[in-house]
Write a protein that binds this DNA or RNA. Sequence first.
DNA 1: AACATGCCCAACCGCTATAAT
DNA 2: TATTATAGCGGTTGGGCATGT
Length: 317
Amino acid sequence: MGRSPCCDENGLKKGPWTPEEDQKLVDYIQKHGHGSWRALPKLAGLNRCGKSCRLRWTNYLRPDIKRGKFSPEEEQTILNLHSILGNKWSAIATHLPGRTDNEIKNFWNTHLKKKLIQMGFDPMTHRPRTDFFATLPHLIALANLKELVDNNPWDDHSMRLQAEAVQNAKLQYLQCLIQSAAAMAGNSTTNSPSSIAAELEPMNLLNSQMMAMPSMPSAPAPAAVHLPELQIPSSFEQQQPLSNETNHQESSFIVFSQGENSTPRTPLISPLSLPPLTDISISNPGDACSTSSCGDGGAMPFWPELLLDEPFLTEFA
DNA sequence: AACATGCCCAACCGCTATAAT
DNA sequence: TATTATAGCGGTTGGGCATGT
């Protein structure tokens, strides 16, 4: 590029600005305009580089800067624009008068990004994440959907994402059930891929019908829902992991807990490498499995339990 | 009360685009 | 056309503060 960074010059102050420095900068710009940022520090009596002065002015001292919390409308604008523009903070900032790109970037990184991840969305694509384990927090969050909705005044964008989340989660959940069933079938009797495929045909039909099934009557249907291709395991042992992008590195499948007669069947995620689960009692979320079927008393694995709301369960049980 | 941890955000760094020479 | 200067952009950092243990 043929030039060195302006701040390489020695002796220039860095770090937080003092009120006195702010005043000098504001006074100078109000009288003379900023002109050449490189020349400004000397003219204004500041021991800073021009770049530092420019950033201080544009990000903090400019009179038209709006400070304080982002409104729900601003939040929605950022979400909408980010889904279109990506990390083009300056472009997004042009649609939010008084907000700087830096402020929007910070708000995104500290709030909105986490919010999307927590809901099971890829913050870059704004689409539901398709790998099952990455979607676990999302599924768990769905269990608390009512609470989420009650406590958060979701805007249209969020509601649309939420609707897609529900739809996608159901599809993934169904597929996991199908895979589980296939795995069981493969382990018990006939285990050739073709015979399993025959067994799965009705489920595939159901799977396709799911695409048209409205999940939230009040929410618009998602524009597109990614439905992964159904994996047909050739045998119980050969079943592919649903995801390896998590802390659970083992292959996984769905099992059902068999609790008291009155308790609903609750799906559990189980590492395939562990002994078969036959007598798992329903536990609280995050509880370590404590039944005798979990192994030989060694280190207990963490068994995440999906506490899905009742309509969700009954719809696919 | 003391320490650890996590969050927030101003500021910095390194890079690219563009204008000027 | 090549080089240099300047402005702007996006990613990252680090210090202050709040909260938890």
